[in-house]
């Protein structure tokens, strides 16, 4: 009777352990899948930054009209250490948005090696990824700056006002999250100058810098899976000991 109970207990513990670990992995997968893509920058030559609009009359009152850029980044999306796909964003520039209580950190966008990027177009945005390749004159123009003659997937952020692209960057033990929000008619960069700067501009907004949960140091008993595995090992060990003891007694 005792043997059956012990077996049942071990079985229950093992099954709960497996059940919980599968649930954990499913939860992780779901979190990963929400991004349109995830990739790592492998070489410093994998990026290209081109000016698409340089204002001729930059000063308006106390403000300077921002320059608009197109960024193209080469990512390794299949973890084979080689760059394989170009992704880009069109219509980006930096502008101080303290008056909106929004934080713009241009330093975040300096290219660093082995940074894992994740990008996605949020559900509410009307934008989509576009393919830039020949015979587009724009592609012919930028081609000499690209290391590889392959297409570029990019989002034209100037097409719609509002939050159009969200990012996450994993660097070291932390990850940075934020989004590209487009300002223009209806959502001006400066509230008192509604028409400034007369063109749409997408500003990379900084939301938070958080520790990467997988890399956080945690105690062994913090997770229920660890506790269960210890219990299983102890019960298996005691069961084995008892079995051996019985055999010894019999002989």
């Amino acid at each position: 009777m005792k043997k059956t109970t012990t077996l049942l207990l071990i079985g229950l513990m093992l099954s709960s352990f497996f059940f919980m670990s599968t649930k954990l992995s499913i939860a992780q997968d779901e979190e990963e899948e929400v991004w349109d893509f995830t990739g790592v920058i492998r070489q410093t030559s994998d990026d290209y930054r081109g000016v698409i609009h340089l204002p001729t009359d930059p000063e308006v009152g106390n403000y300077t009209k921002p320059t608009v850029y197109m960024n193209i980044l080469g990512f390794d999306t299949n973890e084979d250490v080689e760059m394989d796909t170009y992704y880009g964003f069109w219509g980006v520039g930096t502008f101080d948005l303290d008056h909106y209580n929004l934080s713009v950190k241009a330093d975040v966008f300096t290219l660093k090696l082995n940074v894992k990027w994740s990008l996605r177009i949020p559900e509410g945005s009307p934008l989509h990824w576009e393919v830039l390749y020949y015979p587009s004159p724009l592609y012919e123009e930028i081609r000499s700056n690209l290391v590889h003659n392959i297409p570029v997937y990019y989002v034209n952020l100037t097409k719609a006002i509002g939050c159009n692209l969200q990012y996450r960057m994993d660097l070291g033990l932390n990850y940075t999250i934020g989004n590209f929000t487009t300002f223009g008619a209806g959502n001006p960069l400066v509230p008192e100058l509604p028409t400034f700067p007369e063109y749409n501009l997408s500003v990379p907004l900084f939301t938070a810098n958080l520790p990467i949960p997988e890399l956080e140091e945690t105690s062994f008993f913090d997770s229920p899976a660890g506790l269960i595995s210890v219990l299983v090992i102890i019960s298996l060990f005691s069961y084995q000991r008892r079995k051996k003891g019985k055999k010894m007694n019999q002989s």
Binding site: D36, I121, H128, W129, E130, V131, Y133, P151, Y153
Partner: peptide, 17 residues
């Protein structure tokens, strides 16, 4: 050949070639 990282819904005029 190339349709971007998200396909659904995807505007056909942005496909390549």
């Amino acid at each position: 050949i190339f349709v971007g990282p998200t396909h659904d819904p995807y505007p056909e005029d942005e496909w390549w070639p």
